[in-house]
């Protein structure tokens, strides 16, 4: 597989959107101000739309997409359905905000919306789990996608909360972020182990190619350094209760997004079929 840019951005933006939506929902419990929620909700919607748009770019005949409605079992149907449901929930959430609905109502919407959002974050990775591509044939792959969505959600909430002074919220977000970062690291390592022991070993999908071969810059630079280490060090750069400046928080989010995209590129490069003829 080459670098499937449209799919890289599709899945990365969907991760950002669903992650942000869930994170904004979580912030309901941290009693954040309405601005954060409003902006968060809008950001989630924009990211989902950007993801959806990228996926359409990937299609040869987007005008025929309605043909997919007749086949609810396909992965693409699942993805489209979940994007739609998550988007609907985000819209409902924004309307609720706008109409000054009670926290209870908003929380309820957030909880309901979290379900398709989490499923979506997982599903965009799960579609790639297939026996034809040994390096993708593991549930660890959608786990990376899911956790990367969580990370993007944490960091985008970090940007939204950058002017927030409420210490408990800042602390909670920072610890959550660090936890997700650690989890992401663990799952990425676990994924590499899965790749290493996958059947039909082949040089095109070997861990050696990732660690020391031509994918090493992408892995060490993109996934590890930019995607994990930079956000981690930015997160712990200031004392726990102090929020990051907007610039630093934004930088951390951009880095994590680059890291997410890098991992996807890595995945596509490893995604060679069992035997490739052509």
């Amino acid at each position: 597989m080459g670098n499937e840019w449209a799919l890289v951005f599709f899945t990365a933006f969907v991760g950002l959107g669903s992650g942000t939506f869930v994170a904004v929902g979580v912030s309901e419990w941290w009693e954040e101000d309405a601005q954060v929620r409003l902006r968060g909700g809008i950001l989630a919607l924009i990211a989902l739309a950007a993801g959806g748009f990228s996926s359409v770019l990937h299609l040869g005949h987007p005008e025929r997409i309605f043909g997919a409605l007749g086949h609810p079992t396909s992965g693409i149907f699942m993805e489209a359905l979940m994007i739609g449901l998550t988007g609907l929930c985000a819209v409902a959430y924004l309307i609720a905000l706008r109409r000054g609905a009670s926290g209870q109502v908003r929380k309820r919407i957030a909880v309901i919306g979290a379900v398709p959002a989490i499923l979506l974050a997982f599903a965009v990775g799960d579609t790639y789990v297939m026996a034809s591509r040994p390096a993708w044939d593991t549930l660890l792959l959608p786990m990376v996608y899911l956790i990367s969505a969580a990370l993007l959600g944490c960091l985008s909430l970090g940007v939204l909360m950058a002017r927030q002074q409420k210490a408990e919220a800042v602390v909670a977000l920072k610890w959550t972020t660090l936890g997700v970062l650690a989890l992401q690291g663990v799952v990425v390592i676990a994924y590499l182990v899965a790749v290493a022991v996958a059947p039909y070993p082949n040089a095109t999908r070997s861990v050696i190619r990732v660690l020391t071969g031509n994918l090493a810059p992408l892995f060490w630079g993109g996934v590890v350094l930019v995607g994990l280490l930079v956000p981690s060090s930015l997160t712990i750069a200031k004392r726990a209760a102090a929020p990051l400046p907007v610039a630093a928080a934004t930088f951390a989010l951009v880095c994590a997004f680059v890291g997410a995209a890098s991992f996807r590129l890595l995945m596509f490069n490893l995604g060679t079929s069992v035997w490739h003829f052509f």
Binding site: M1, Y128, M130, S132, G271, S273, H276
Partner: peptide, 9 residues
Amino acid sequence: YCMMACPYG
């Protein structure tokens, strides 16, 4: 998607 699903390209 089918191209990805084919084990032989």
